[in-house]
């Protein structure tokens, strides 16, 4: 069985990755824009939040700045694609690589500890809750608010225009939608969410590290696909809910797998396991057809 700490820890990271899954839902699903920027915007959010907190900023303001930084990174990827006509996947790889240098510049060294600093979590410890319960409650609140806002946004005129852009760009243009602008906005918001996730992750782990973004995209995808298998995304609301549920299930499953001594798995095996799981989910029959198509036969 999982210890309490392991259980709450899985829940906590699951909630954070739920935000990443929101971002990936927005780029991959809504906009049909395979975006790998997230591997760079996740540590970017962490780095920005960490450095600003150390510089004495209010942790919520620092987290807000991390969101903006993530949005800027996403906007760069989208601009490379929309304005310079670079293939979306390649554009995102370019930004991701660039962010590695930028994140090192921001932090000035490969990792930064936040142990003695006030974070968004600090004020709640005084309420007599356990350390891990605090993060789970706070992150549940944050993801709940994000889910509600995203859901309303998707139902708005601009949100609908964004969905049309991803589903049928020619039709969207014929309806007067500036599809390029929608891609820029959508990929920016997507990476803003990932920047937020990175900022929260750094604060709950007590450190930011340049390598913490490795594989975020794959974990986010695993959450998205897993969630969709459990909750069929017949509406925007269900699709968003699936992101959260998928991320939590994924993290709990990983925690159980690592906990089961019989399997002999170690923490460093995580990326390999995830890659295998995502591959299986993509190729196995009955996997979500749309994603399958996306990776097996890329459209122009």
């Amino acid at each position: 069985m999982l210890s309490n700490i392991a259980f709450y820890g899985a829940l906590e990271t699951g909630l954070i990755y739920g935000l990443v899954a929101f971002g990936i839902y927005l780029s991959f699903r809504v906009l049909d824009f395979p975006d790998l920027t997230v591997d760079g915007s996740f540590p970017l959010g962490a780095a920005v939040a960490a450095m600003l907190i150390i510089a004495g900023w209010n942790p919520w303001l620092a987290t807000g700045a991390a969101i903006l930084a993530g949005m800027a990174a996403g906007a760069v990827t989208a601009l490379l694609n929309v304005k310079l006509k670079i293939l979306n996947l390649l554009a995102s790889i370019l930004t991701m690589i660039a962010l590695y240098s930028i994140n090192l510049r921001i932090m000035g060294r490969p990792n930064v500890a936040l142990l003695m600093e006030d974070t968004v979590l600090t004020p709640w410890y005084n309420l007599g809750l356990e350390y891990h319960q605090v993060s789970v409650l706070l992150f549940t609140f944050v993801i709940g608010v994000s889910l509600f806002l995203l859901w309303r946004f998707m139902k708005s005129e601009i949100g609908l225009a964004m969905r049309a852009t991803g589903a049928n760009a020619r039709m969207a243009r014929a309806q007067g939608i500036a599809t390029g602008g929608m891609i820029i906005l959508g990929v920016a918001v997507s990476n803003g969410l990932v920047g937020l996730a990175g900022a929260l992750f750094a604060q709950s782990q007590g450190a930011a590290d340049v390598t913490m973004g490795v594989g975020v995209i794959v974990i986010g995808l695993a959450s998205l696909i897993g969630g969709e298998a459990v909750i069929t995304p017949t509406s925007v609301f269900r699709a968003l809910l699936a992101c959260v549920v998928g991320a939590i299930i994924y993290r709990l499953a990983i925690a159980f797998a690592l906990n089961a001594d019989a399997l002999g798995l170690k923490a460093q095996d995580l990326n390999l396991i995830t890659a295998v799981l995502v591959t299986l989910a993509i190729v196995l029959p009955g996997a979500r057809v749309s994603l399958m198509n996306k990776f097996k036969r890329r459209k122009a």
Binding site: K155, E157, I158, L160, A161, Q175, G176
Partner: peptide, 13 residues
């Protein structure tokens, strides 16, 4: 989508 063709779109439903 069509009812807003050629018009500004906002954050309203």
């Amino acid at each position: 989508l069509a009812i807003k063709r050629g018009k500004r779109r906002g954050l309203g439903t």
